[in-house]
Structures are given as structure tokens and as C-alpha cells.
Design a protein around this nucleic acid. Structure first.
Lengths: 139, 139
DNA sequence: GTTTCATGTAACTTATAATGTTACATGATC
DNA sequence: GATCATGTAACATTATAAGTTACATGAAAC
């Protein structure tokens, strides 16, 4: 979203500063997005990161998938294939519950396009400027 | 569930052995269950842990709540109250999605009583014994 | 009543994963 | 060819959960 708001490609350094992290961490994360075709990267002068397709055609789910679709849950099985019959029964029941919740979560993420978030962002920016006076938001 | 299957209170040491962990870790975890009134503990000879109420009246949610209701999600906001307007908008959208998923997950956990799991466990135990010949399952 | 057994808990160590950092290779633009 | 930017390996730091040691407290057995 920062990229789409900018008029030129943004460097990893600029992005890192905006989100209080490190250029290499940015590259690592963005690499997933690049491989998924969500963003582009260019080397050399005037290079950096830019969006590769319409924000309308990107959802939060696409971003999630692009970064590797890590398990969204902090709770999990202590053992994957336990010999303990109690543990088996509990694991299966929890797995069912998590699966249901995950399905719903993913469906929800698919409904949120980055374009929709960009609209909300613009509203927020307007309100912010009215309250505090003009403020350049280039990054 | 191990406790309800046993005919006497089980010590932290016995439980630790059954779940391949450490007696102190067992005590730490069980302390939450005790404070929530799900289990009892007794010191001294013949002491140990036992269930404090009918398995019918305990659900997976009760257990989850008893151990402190930690956030079930591995994904979260990078910053709780970010100044960045993009981050604000994304956080709120994700928070909404997580909240919905969490509500559904908790509702689901409330439908699973430990008694229901105990029934499944007994079935599994029967099948296990038919397949392998009698096997004492006291812990 | 004292010995034994069990929990309760503080303090510390270890394991693991995410994040941050340094260093340098590769490629594009000026 | 000098400069700028990504790509990536290797390493360091940090945070958190799990495991461990040590010892105090209380209950039962003898």
C-alpha cells in the first residue's frame, strides 16, 4: 500500500524506515510478494519496489499466501502423531475446530481487497490533515 | 482425561511421564486448571491430581480459559497503536477478521465436552486392544 | 513426632524461532 | 567505471516457551 501511494519505486531502505525495521528484512518479506507476482523489484538507479497489478485484484489473502501461508494459530499439537490415545482424540478434536476457524478466516481475508483498504486509508489521511493541518504523506 | 481414567489421584511425576514432559511443567499448567476449579490437588501420601467435577460439565473452552485464554493466533499486529495510517487501516481490518474467527473457534470449543472426548477415547482403546491384544491403560 | 511423599513456587538454564545485522555478490543506471 | 539498489548467505540478537534445580510447605504413614 505504501508502494501504491508513492509516485516512484521505493527502496528497501525507505520502506524499512517507514515500518521501523531493517532493509534486509524488507527484502526477505517482499521476495515472497515478488514471487507471487504482487510486486516488482528493480535494481540500480531509480530502482526499488513497485506494485505489479491493480490493488483491486489483490486481497489480504493473496498477501498471506505470498508470504508462505504460515499457520495462523499459536496453539497446536504437542505431538503430530502421538501414541497416547488421549492425545490422539484431543488433537483430532482441536484440529477440526482449527480447520473450521481457518476456513472462515481465509474466506474473510479474500473479501478484503487492498483497493478497499486504500480507500479507507485516504479517508483517514483526509481526517488526519483536517485535524493537524497539511501533512505530506509521500511514503 | 488421564485423571478421569485413573482410579486414584495421579502425581505430577506420573502425568509428566505420560506426556513426555517435566513434573514442574505439569504443576504449572495444572495450577491454572485448579484455580478454575476443574481439578483438585492433594499433598502428601496418596496425593496428586484428580478431576473436580463431572466431565460432562467441562468443555475444551473451559480448559482453554483455565490456562489463561492466550491469543489463539500466531499472526498479530506489529504495533498496537501505530502512527502510520496504512498500518492502522490494515490492523483494523485484520483485527476484525481475527475477531470473527476467534468467536467461531471459541463457540466450537464450547461444544466439545471432555465427556464426549472420553467416549471417543474408549472407542479408540477398544479398537486398540482388539488389534494388539489386551493392554492395560491405567495412566 | 519424625520420616516420607507430594504439591507450590522462585530462580535459573536451555531450546527455538523471529528479527535484526553485516558483508558481499549481482545487475542497472548515470 | 562509479554509484545505487536488490539478492542472499552467514551470523548475532531478542523474546518466549519449555525444561530444570532447589527448597519451602503441608499431609499421611509409621
Amino acid at each position: 500500500m505504501h508502494l501504491s501511494a508513492a509516485s516512484k519505486p521505493l527502496t528497501s531502505e525507505e520502506l524499512a524506515k517507514a515500518m521501523h525495521t531493517n532493509p534486509v528484512v524488507v527484502r526477505r518479506t517482499m521476495a515472497g510478494l515478488r514471487e507471487a507476482g504482487l510486486v516488482r523489484s528493480e535494481k540500480g538507479h531509480g530502482g526499488g519496489w513497485s506494485v505489479a497489478r491493480d490493488l483491486e485484484a489483490m486481497t489480504l489473502y493473496d498477501v498471506y499466501a505470498a508470504i508462505g501461508a504460515p499457520t495462523p494459530f499459536a496453539l497446536g499439537n504437542r505431538t503430530e502423531s502421538p501414541g497416547c490415545l488421549v492425545e490422539q482424540v484431543v488433537n483430532e478434536s482441536l484440529d477440526d475446530a482449527f480447520k473450521e476457524a481457518e476456513t472462515i478466516l481465509m474466506a474473510r481475508l479474500r473479501t478484503v481487497s487492498l483497493a478497499a483498504l486504500a480507500v479507507q486509508f485516504k479517508h483517514r489521511l483526509t481526517a488526519h490533515n483536517e485535524h493537524q493541518g497539511e501533512c505530506v504523506y509521500d511514503v
